[in-house]
Design a protein around this nucleic acid. Structure first.
Length: 850
RNA sequence: GCGGGCGUGAUGGAACUGGUAGACAUACCAGACUUAAAAUCUGGAGGCCUAAUGGCCGUGGGGGUUCGAGUCCCCCCGCCCGCACCA
């Protein structure tokens, strides 16, 4: 018996699809559209299993919707700007463009054999001038609409390489390449005013019902709206022009528990003090010389510096409070200063213990009443009833918050304040390989946007990475230009844009990728929104939040209609692809090809037979060498097998464990379906058996229902389990040949989104048998086969399953009751007693309490 | 540190809104076919006790709500993701 030969069959269908332009998406007003999009990849040069999983999922949706009659848009492109190209340029002396373009070619070659239903005519790369030209036009419009600003912010500075470092390039406080201690440097940079949209981005999350709750929660917390108070504390003795310190707090109700005040090391007052006190200067320098990264800040030891300044408590005129400069206060959040209440804040508590400050409790909560009785050494969190607080005593903490704010307002040294954690989006990058910011600095005219007719501002090709610093900054003939306004010599902006800008509108551009303006209204109106967006959770906040902001910016600049301000109707976040890790006795990581598994569970190294230690399964990564190359898998087993496997074993939103055994199971199933089809076609016509036919027909319809539901709910693993079951059913069925062929045909149609090549091949075979053109429409279940006439109801006695009864689904409760009480097992348990309670959950279960 | 998520047999997982825990698949065991192996097919199987019928235990750990908890609530443990210049 011959086998399903993926090497022959898969290319055959792929060629046919290509010849027929099967996946070309064109506007067709007579059909409903469906836009499915997977997050476009960074062209690293190699497709990895994560991509395969991502695109396999997207393809299931695309092919499913297409079979249902939708006009499907399923495009692909490249997130092609970014640091790795510059790193390659430095390490391998290849131009970033050469490197990137070669990678795109390679990855496309690796992607093609997967047989994805992608409209390649819409392919785009963000590093292509035709793309970034339009992005520059958008930037200029945003600039003119007041969505862009410049302000100072700090960066990680490598003093040896004379370059700005990304957070990931800072390893233990040192530059990854130079090893020099990283400094913090203030630069004037470009920002998008995303914080103007904090409220809007927050409230609109409610409209995103197609998004996972977890992503909406994460964005909510990231935006971080809080209700609190801004309080000014008067300095006992003014410091130059500084007369008070403004503090933002969400807990004004704990004001009487305040025992110190702390300001950020880069707070203006701290900077003022640093000018006159060397020790303070040193301390501030030490604090601010860390990475500009919140995680480092939060996990480093809390330190403070006691200044000579003191502030007055707003309600206790003779209470003086010390002012600290503390390394855990963020200048970017609130006012860059806090009041410390060690009795009710964990961080303040630790700080107070370290510096021997008073700990005053000003409220008790029901659960923690005893804490306040036994010596005041604990932090009481949450809400409660106020104590030790003058006019607030006896109030709830909620009431106290309002009272304090009212009183402060009356006294003129405070007010209610709503605060957001979300900061403006810094888009400046001091790098070559990004979209140039189309702005010109003119001595006379100031900042001027480049004229639109001069776009794109092309990246110069003749650059070198031999010298430290930014190649654009060094490239004088490129950066020297005429001012568009006064024609005097001026300087081009040398910052390029954050790559998140590129990815904030590519999904819009896909609707009209070749237009010589940013977007086409006709195409937008037909194709938008993205009906289903699929990508990793790691993008839950930044990419998705920036895209939501960018859409609003494009509404404001008139590029897209208001109705597309939330561009992604539904979002799905898929899990990672993991593999076990292996280490030899020297602690070196080994790749899966370098080891073999023995039957007894031992793992040995192929080269010298030495015993290998199995590590935990982690995300496939180069550094741990636990990568399986999709290319090898597709060559060995075929695309259908690879696709089937990545969809089969785990729920799509969870991590999947790549196993050799799993792939083989997938391969066996492909072979089995193929063989089954052949066998059915070749078998003689059996005498018809109505009963058997009816049974199979019922299973066929149930399979349609279950598999469709699985796809609709992104439970591909369940659809696949149902397809295994249906395959088993057909194999065992004694139904007539014609019905078995019909069943195999349905099986192929249901499998087609996952294994399109196999499905096409089978449909061709079955249609020859049934003597009609292959029909690839999605099958529809007949509802009459979906209801069960006879139910098996389990009977529990005291919550434990003891028996079951078979009963007609239309049976009344009385009948169920009498049947239950007549059951032998039930009688045995009841004896002569009456049941205490009899609970009948319709169509589910019966529980008897005895 | 903060924010989000996950935890079920030997393994990946299933169990719709609180209602038969372990579908489906893998590994394993037995049988058929074979000179043999592979492939394929058939069957078995959560753990413990029992000859069997049956009983007890069991969804990371501890407690709670309920007639009934993998699912809801509280506390704890472990792992993963994000933390604003990786993409």
């Amino acid at each position: 018996m011959d086998r399903y030969n993926s090497k022959v069959i898969e290319p055959k269908w792929q060629k046919l699809w290509e010849k027929n332009n099967a996946f070309k998406a064109e506007i067709d007003q007579t059909k409903p559209k469906y836009y499915v999009l997977e997050m476009f990849p960074y062209p690293s040069g190699k497709i990895h299993m994560g991509h395969v999983r991502n695109y396999a999922m997207g393809d299931v949706i695309a092919r499913y919707k297409k079979a249902q009659g939708f006009n499907v848009l399923h495009p692909m492109g490249w997130d092609a700007f970014g640091m790795p190209a510059e790193n390659a340029a430095m390490e391998k002396k290849i131009h970033p463009r050469t490197w990137t373009e070669a990678n795109i070619r390679d990855m496309k070659h690796q992607l093609k054999p997967m047989g994805l239903s992608i409209d390649w005519s819409r392919e785009l790369a963000t590093c292509d001038p035709t793309y970034y030209k339009q992005q520059q036009a958008l930037f200029i419009d945003m600039y003119n609409s007041g969505l862009v600003k410049r302000k100072s912010s700090s960066v990680n500075w490598d003093p040896v390489d004379m370059t700005v470092l990304a957070n990931e390039q800072v390893v233990e406080g040192k530059g990854w390449r130079s090893g020099a201690p990283v400094e913090r440097k203030e630069l004037t940079q470009w920002f998008f005013n995303i914080s103007d949209y904090s409220e809007e981005l927050l409230t609109s999350l409610n409209t995103l019902s197609g998004w996972p709750d977890k992503v909406r929660t994460m964005q909510t917390n990231w935006i971080g709206k809080s209700f609190g108070a801004e309080i000014s504390f008067n300095l006992l003795e003014p410091l130059n022009h500084f007369k008070d310190v403004k503090v933002y707090t969400t807990r004004p109700d704990t004001i009487f528990g305040m025992t110190f005040l702390a300001i950020a090391p880069n707070h203006p007052i701290a900077e003022e003090l640093a000018k006159i006190n060397e020790k303070i200067a040193d301390f501030c320098h030490e604090c601010t010389n860390k990475t500009v990264n919140e995680e480092t800040l939060e996990t480093t030891e809390k330190k403070g510096f006691l200044t000579k300044l003191e502030v007055r408590h707003p309600f206790l005129s003779n209470k003086k409070l010390p002012v600290f400069i503390a390394n855990f206060i963020l200048m970017d959040y609130g006012t860059g200063a806090i009041f410390g209440c060690p009795g009710h804040d964990q961080r303040d508590f630790e700080f107070a213990q370290k510096y021997n400050l008073d700990i005053i409790h000003v409220f008790v909560s029901e659960q923690s009443e005893k804490i306040s009785n036994d010596g005041n050494e604990k932090v009481v969190l949450g809400e409660g009833r106020v104590i030790n607080s003058d006019f607030l005593d006896g109030k709830t903490t909620m009431e106290a918050r309002k009272l304090v704010c009212d009183k402060l307002k009356e006294k003129g040294n405070g007010s209610y304040k709503i605060n957001f954690r979300l900061r403006d989006w810094g888009i400046s990058r001091q790098r070559y390989w990004g979209c140039p910011i189309p702005m010109i600095h003119c001595q006379k005219c100031g900042l001027i946007p480049e004229k639109k007719e001069n776009l794109p501002v092309l990246l110069p090709e003749d650059i070198d990475f031999e010298n430290p610093g930014n190649p654009l900054e060094r490239h004088k003939s490129w950066s020297t230009v005429q001012c568009p306004s006064c024609n005097e010599e001026a300087k081009r902006e040398t910052d390029t844009m954050d790559t998140f800008v590129d990815s904030s509108w590519y999904f819009l551009r896909f609707t009209s990728p070749n237009e010589d303006k940013p977007l086409s209204q006709e195409a937008l109106n037909y194709w938008m929104n993205v009906d289903q967006y699929i990508g990793g959770v790691e993008h839950a906040i930044l990419h998705l939040l920036y895209s939501r902001f960018f859409s609003r910016a494009l509404v404001k600049t008139g590029h897209i209609p208001e109705k597309f301000k939330e561009p992604f109707d539904a979002l799905f976040t898929q899990g990672m692809v993991c593999h076990e890790t292996y280490r030899d006795s020297n602690g070196n990581w080994l790749s899966p090809e370098e080891v073999f598994h023995e039957k007894n569970g031992n793992i040995r190294k192929l080269s010298d037979n030495s015993l290998i230690e199995k590590g935990p399964s982690t995300k496939m990564s180069k550094s741990k060498r636990n990568v399986v190359d999709p290319k090898d898998i597709i060559e060995q087993y075929g695309a259908d097998t690879a696709r089937w496997f990545v969809l089969s074993d785990s729920p799509p939103d969870r991590d999947i464990e790549w196993t050799e055994a799993g792939v083989e199971a997938a391969w066996r199933h492909i072979q089995r379906v193929w063989r089954l089809t052949k066998e059915i076609i070749e078998e003689g016509a059996a005498a018809s058996n109505t009963n058997e036919d009816e049974k199979l027909e019922k299973l066929r319809n149930q399979a349609i229902e279950k598999v469709s539901k699985g796809i609709e709910t992104f439970s591909f693993n369940k659809s696949i389990a149902n397809l295994y079951e249906f395959t088993n059913s057909i194999t065992k069925s004694k139904a007539s040949k014609i019905l078995k062929i019909k069943s195999v045909e349905t099986l192929a149609k249901l499998m087609k989104p996952m294994t399109p090549h196999l499905a096409e091949e089978i449909l061709q075979m079955t249609s020859e048998q049934l003597d009609y053109e292959p029909d690839t429409n999605w099958p529809v279940a007949d509802p009459k086969y979906l209801k069960e006439d006879l139910l098996i109801l389990p009977i529990q006695i005291n919550g434990k399953r003891k028996a079951e009864i078979k009963i007609d689904s239309s049976a009344s409760e009385d009948i169920i009751k009498s049947e239950t009480l007549n059951n032998e097992t039930v009688k045995k348990y009841l004896g002569n007693n009456q049941p205490k309670r009899l609970i009948i959950v319709p169509k589910r279960i019966i529980n008897i309490v005895v």
